[in-house]
Each structure stands twice: as structure tokens, then as C-alpha cells.
């Protein structure tokens, strides 16, 4: 871990100012990913600005709507069990609780989870020489390496890493909006635009500017999200990253699907909103055949590699399973 200076931000304005003034400064939130990456020598900030004491840890109803606003520093554990979340967005609660461990969830923050970096082996350990994300132009070690945990959708020749978050998959399905503060004031970023596909610049993972601070995530009112579910498929029963995961919500009307929200995890460089699946569901009967066709619609474009081709079939099944579970909910 490289040396750095540490300071505690008194308010968000000061935090933004300090980060804007120092390109190698970073905000310290829960630290569960940043400190880990600093120990690995992947992240090397010269300065850490501790934002943990900023008053951004509330979950509240959004004025004038049935949506909620989640403060950037709400811990994953608190968010998972917040009554507004469990009652209105069970898929988010399930996603959070399927991630990491109780200890890590007590530290990890909402904003930090948005910025969680990939678990790609070739990225995470600088002993591996090739990683375009870590060192642009060095090549992708995973492409012809051990790529069991890698992407099948939206990847590029530059990078086939996946986004590791569970929370974000649920938020992608829920049409979340990310609120950020920067030197020019506040702006909002629709969730679909927050994370980026790797393209030619896999090192640029989000559309957040380096001098911006996430202050909150808004979840719009989605009444049918009470009928939602997060399915995570992993190698062991708990405390493991997803091979594939599915966040799903369905609005049914007389056995037909009126609206659908589906997002996938473990398959792409960003939480993958399965819009083709959603389109294929609308107006159809909520039955396994529909679900199968809807899964196919999304996965037709999927491409596997030597060790991860199984994810295409696994994702297909996981989508069917998740949708079936949601359809059976009262």
C-alpha cells in the first residue's frame, strides 16, 4: 500500500473541493473495496478524504412520490433491512443480503457498491502483466486466460471483466437514478448510463467524473416491485460472487405480463439491464415458455470463452427460474 495522507471531510462541499484539487485523491467510504485494492497495489491514491461522517446515511421517502432516496453512505446492511426497501423493493433487499458477508455489509456503502471494481483476476493482482483496465494497452489477460468468471454480454476485445455487485443488479432493474455533486453543482445520472461497457477504455468504468461525489441513489415508485426477486447462482451457498444473477420484477394482469423489469449480474462489465427480455415478456402469458423465449431474446447475442461458455446456459436457466419465482408470488 502506497503512502497517503488522510483527512476527514467536514462537509460534502469541502470533500468535492479537495478531490477536485487533487487528481490522485480518493474518497474513503466503507473501504471494503478501496482498501483491499490499495493492499493489492491496484489503487494508489496519494490522499484519502474520509467522507464517512457526512450526513448521507438516510433512507427516506421521496417527496411527492412513492419512491425512495438512499443516501450515499447508507450501509448495505441497513439498506437491506430498511422497511421502505423490504416493503417496496424486496429484490433490492435480497440482492444486498446475497452479497459479501454481514461484516462487509456493515461497512460497505451504497455509493461504494456502485463503484465496486471487477474481480477479474488479471485486474486484481498487478503480478499479472496484462490488463487493459489497470494498464491501458497492456492487453487482456483474461481473453485467453482462465476466464471462468468473465463476461458473455457487452464485452470488448479490450476487456471481458464483469461487474461484481449484487446491489447494482437490483438497482438496474429498478430504474434507479444516481445523484452526484460536483464543482458545478448537482446532477443526476440514470442508472443505465452510470456504468459503462468496456469498449476501448475499460479503465473508465462509470460516467461519474473524478471530481464528483455520489450523494444518493433515487428509486422511483414501481408499485409492482413488491413482486420481485433476486436469484444469485454461485459456487457455494454463501459469501461468493455470482456466476450469474437475475433481478426480476413482474406486473401481471390476469395471467399476462403488463410490465417487467429484468437485470442480470455476473455476465457483463456493468449491471446488465435485460431490455430484450423485458420486451419479449410484455403482453405475454406468464408461463415457462414465455420466460424461455424471453431469456433467449437477451442471450442470443451472448458470446462465451474457453471457460465461461456455461454462463450462457446458466443465465438462460436463471432468468427462467427468477421469472417463474416472481410469477408464483402472491
Amino acid at each position: 500500500m502506497n503512502p497517503f495522507t488522510y483527512s476527514r471531510a467536514a462537509d460534502w462541499q469541502g470533500a468535492v473541493h479537495d478531490v477536485a484539487a487533487d487528481p490522485s485523491a480518493k474518497f474513503l467510504g466503507g473501504g471494503t473495496n478501496l482498501i483491499d485494492l490499495m493492499k493489492m497495489g491496484v489503487e494508489k491514491p496519494d490522499r484519502l478524504i474520509d467522507i464517512n461522517r457526512l450526513p448521507l446515511a438516510q433512507v427516506e421517502e421521496m417527496p411527492g412520490s412513492a419512491g425512495i432516496r438512499i443516501g450515499a453512505l447508507v450501509r448495505n446492511s441497513d439498506l437491506a433491512e430498511h422497511p421502505l426497501v423490504t416493503s417496496r423493493y424486496p429484490v433490492l433487499s435480497e440482492a444486498l443480503l446475497s452479497g459479501a458477508s454481514p461484516q462487509l455489509r456493515n461497512l460497505a456503502t451504497t455509493a461504494g457498491n456502485l463503484l465496486q471494481r471487477t474481480r477479474c483476476y488479471y485486474f486484481y493482482d498487478p503480478a499479472f502483466p496484462m490488463c487493459n483496465k489497470r494498464q491501458p494497452g497492456s492487453g487482456c489477460g483474461a481473453l485467453e486466460g482462465y476466464n471462468r468468471i468473465h463476461a458473455i454480454l457487452g464485452q470488448s476485445e479490450q476487456c471481458i471483466a464483469t461487474h461484481p455487485s449484487d446491489m447494482c443488479v437490483a438497482m438496474a432493474a429498478l430504474d434507479a437514478v444516481v445523484r452526484v455533486q460536483g464543482p458545478k453543482g448537482e446532477r443526476t445520472i440514470p442508472f443505465a448510463d452510470f456504468h459503462r461497457l468496456p469498449g476501448d477504455t475499460p479503465g473508465v468504468e462509470t460516467n461519474l467524473q473524478p471530481n464528483e461525489l455520489i450523494t444518493a441513489v433515487d428509486l422511483p415508485a414501481i408499485p409492482f416491485a413488491t413482486r420481485s426477486h433476486y436469484l444469485k447462482v454461485r459456487d457455494r451457498a454463501s459469501y461468493a460472487f455470482a456466476l450469474v444473477s437475475v433481478a426480476a420484477a413482474l406486473e401481471l394482469e390476469g395471467g399476462n405480463i403488463k410490465s417487467a423489469r429484468v437485470a442480470l449480474g455476473g455476465v457483463a462489465h456493468k449491471p446488465w439491464r435485460a431490455t430484450k427480455t423485458e420486451q419479449a415478456l410484455i403482453g405475454k402469458k406468464a408461463d415457462p415458455e414465455t420466460f424461455r423465449a424471453a431469456a433467449e431474446a437477451e442471450l442470443a447475442a451472448a458470446k462465451g470463452y474457453k471457460y465461461n461458455s456455461f454462463k450462457i446456459e446458466l443465465a438462460r436457466r436463471a432468468i427462467i427460474q427468477a421469472l417463474s419465482t416472481v410469477a408464483k408470488m402472491a
Binding site: Y6, G31, T32, D50, N52, Q103, L104, N106, L107
Partner: peptide
């Protein structure tokens, strides 16, 4: 930490 379980290895003491 304040009664909540955390991983002390990922927590900076100065914070």
C-alpha cells in the same frame, strides 16, 4: 465497531 461486526483488516485505524 459501535456494536456492529466489521472486518478490522479493511478498516483504517485513523478513521
Amino acid at each position: 465497531l459501535n456494536g456492529r461486526r466489521v472486518n478490522s483488516c479493511l478498516t483504517l485505524a485513523v478513521a
